[in-house]
Write a protein that binds this DNA or RNA. Structure first.
Lengths: 122, 122
DNA sequence: CCTATGTTTCGCCACTTAACGAAATATAAG
DNA sequence: CTTATATTTCGTTAAGTGGCGAAACATAGG
């Protein structure tokens, strides 16, 4: 029950749902999510902590950046089931389509990591 | 998104989850749910209103009593999917097993409707 | 009509939560 | 070492939420 409620509470905030859907099929660092949602970094960090504690996302640290991704498929059915449900029923949401569009710009513009690599090359 | 969040918010309270699981396979009136959860009738009524607004339950009025049940199967997949997920992953929860046991007593003791019927028969 | 019972609505209170900024921490680069 | 950037932690504040009791509403029965 505790795990169940942690998941449903994690899913009961619009910004956390937007984050999870943005993480579908790609990983993102905190600053990219911050730019997408236009929230304070501390706020996004708190959201990521809640999602992480609910076992809905995993993270890896790469230099200064922390990249988050959806949990892997072969996770326990409690988590896998609800992520599948979310993705299947939320695909055509207006806000999420806007996010997907904005994410393209954020990714095309190049992440800071890429810009730093460019600087190295110059 | 609005429907989605109404559902996840409805599912993010332990007493509402207990209500939904109690309604699995049987309908219950508000006073029976009140007895099960040991909450004030006004509190239970509020919970039922939230579950109803999220389209997770349906109700019928019979005399003084309002009976609630889980929504029918052939409801839209957004709702059907999450109810299935909840039932499949919450079956062996400790609190819910206790509730199931207590519900037997509540139902065996006879609902007020039955007692009224008995009075008619005497 | 009057009473009893089930349910809902309303107002209030305690607690939680999402937001922010400031400060602390971590790491890469000069 | 110092600076700059990314992230997290902490404290505060405004808004939301779950709980209750009182009162209103609905209905069955005397």
């Amino acid at each position: 029950m505790r795990d169940f409620l942690e998941i449903t509470k994690a899913l009961s905030d619009v910004n956390r749902v937007r984050i999870l859907m943005a993480l579908n099929k790609r990983e993102l660092c905190v600053c990219q999510i911050t730019e997408l949602l236009e929230l304070a970094p501390s706020t996004v960090s708190k959201h990521m902590s809640i999602l992480d504690h609910a076992r809905l996302v995993e993270s890896r640290k790469d230099g200064r950046w922390v990249y988050y991704r959806l949990v892997s498929e072969e996770v326990k059915p409690l988590v896998a089931g609800v992520i599948e449900w979310m993705i299947e029923n939320l695909g055509d949401d207006k806000i999420l389509l806007q996010d997907d569009h904005r994410l393209k710009d954020i990714l095309d513009k190049g992440c800071l990591e890429n810009r730093n690599s460019m600087k190295k090359m110059i």
